[in-house]
């Protein structure tokens, strides 16, 4: 074809396409198209499993011990993922069981204990650090900030391992203790200290995160409020009590709620500690127990019930905290 007629042809095509576009209305579902991939994934993998968990909690779903998918063994624990079989409706039996399940209760206690230690430590530390970093006289703010934030990026399993190594008999911590003349502690040997260890570990890992949030909140407080308080006669402590804390309330509430939710999720830390020899009974958290139930004992129905109860507890706690503000 001659070049002239090619041009003419493409012109005509373009013209026709444009006419077509003008005639067609905008596809009303454009938004849906954008939303679709996310939504499908969400429903399949997040929404559906939630309902499925609740559904399963009313069943016994016992696994059959045929050749396992794989197994893992460390320390005292042997974990196995098998292929699944038999499903049987049992109504509320799982829930009745967990009311009587002392292991579950113990694991709840462990989790709550760690939470109770970790929360004041971490929030107090984060608040104090944020206040100091916000004050006028501090230099090298950026350096300190970065440093505090670093642990937040640490892999949860890896950092637990590091702590185990530090804390083990003859490890770095023992050496430091000796420097100060304190008797070394058997962190992994008894339940009391293993729980405390977990609390300290969590504080190490997450303080920076909360500190950043509180710091941002601090920076929104108008300087003139402090000046007015100064003129009214407030000392530094009084300013903190009457201006800083009330103004920080929403931020502190946020920190409280997220920390609460987070502390009921702990799995990596207990796994490593137990693997390193900590007493299972006193160290297992709720999620760890659920894991044992579901993937070691293969009782997926009971595990689902436990999950439902756990989520229920966490959500209730959050609601209580929000209402209490």
């Amino acid at each position: 074809m001659s070049s002239e007629s090619i041009v003419k042809l493409s012109d005509r095509l373009r013209f026709q396409r444009q006419r077509f576009k003008e005639v067609m209305p905008t596809i009303p579902g454009t938004a849906y198209i954008f939303l679709a991939p996310f939504f499908i994934t969400f429903v399949l993998f997040l929404a559906f499993p939630i309902f499925y968990t609740v559904y399963l909690s009313f069943f016994t779903y016992q696994g059959v011990a045929s050749d396992p998918l794989f197994w893992v063994q460390f320390g005292n624990v042997y974990l196995e993922i098998p292929k699944i079989a038999s499903l049987e409706f049992v109504g509320l039996a799982n829930y009745q069981r967990l009311l009587r399940d002392s292991v579950f209760h113990q694991s709840m206690f462990n989790t709550i204990y760690v939470f109770a230690i970790e929360l004041p430590l971490m929030v107090g530390l984060a608040l104090g650090l944020a206040v100091v970093l916000n004050a006028g006289f501090t230099r090298f703010k950026g350096v300190f900030r970065s440093l505090m934030l670093l642990p937040v990026s640490a892999n949860t399993v890896a950092y637990s391992v590091v702590f185990v190594v530090i804390v083990a008999e003859g490890g770095l911590l023992d050496f430091i203790f000796q420097l100060f003349g304190i008797a070394p502690l058997n962190w992994l040997g008894n339940g009391f200290w293993s729980r405390n260890l977990m609390a300290f570990m969590v504080v190490w890992r997450w303080t920076g995160y909360n500190m950043i949030i509180i710091l941002a909140g601090l920076q929104t407080i108008s300087e003139s409020l402090y000046e007015a308080a100064e003129i009214d006669g407030a000392s530094r402590l009084q300013k903190f009590r009457y201006i800083t804390i009330p103004q920080l309330k929403p931020v502190l509430l946020f920190v409280l709620v997220t920390t609460t939710i987070g502390s009921f999720k702990k799995f990596s830390e207990p796994t490593i500690l137990i693997g390193a020899g900590a007493p299972v009974k006193e160290t297992r958290t709720v999620v760890y127990y659920i894991y044992e139930v579901a993937f070691q004992n293969l009782q997926l129905g009971y595990g689902s019930a436990l999950t439902v109860v756990l989520v229920g507890i966490v959500m209730s706690l959050s609601v209580i905290q929000l209402k209490w503000s």
């Binding site: 939303l35 969400f42 939630i50 399963l56 999720k265 659920i290 993937f295 989520v311 959050s318």
Partner: peptide
């Protein structure tokens, strides 16, 4: 739009680790 958004909002509270059981079933 509003209800879908609210639905997604609701899942924020659910700790992600706990969906493991049904997810595993789905996967297998």
């Amino acid at each position: 739009k509003k209800s879908i958004f609210a639905g997604i909002l609701a899942t924020l509270i659910i700790p992600v680790n706990l969906l493991v059981i049904p997810l595993f079933l789905v996967m297998s």
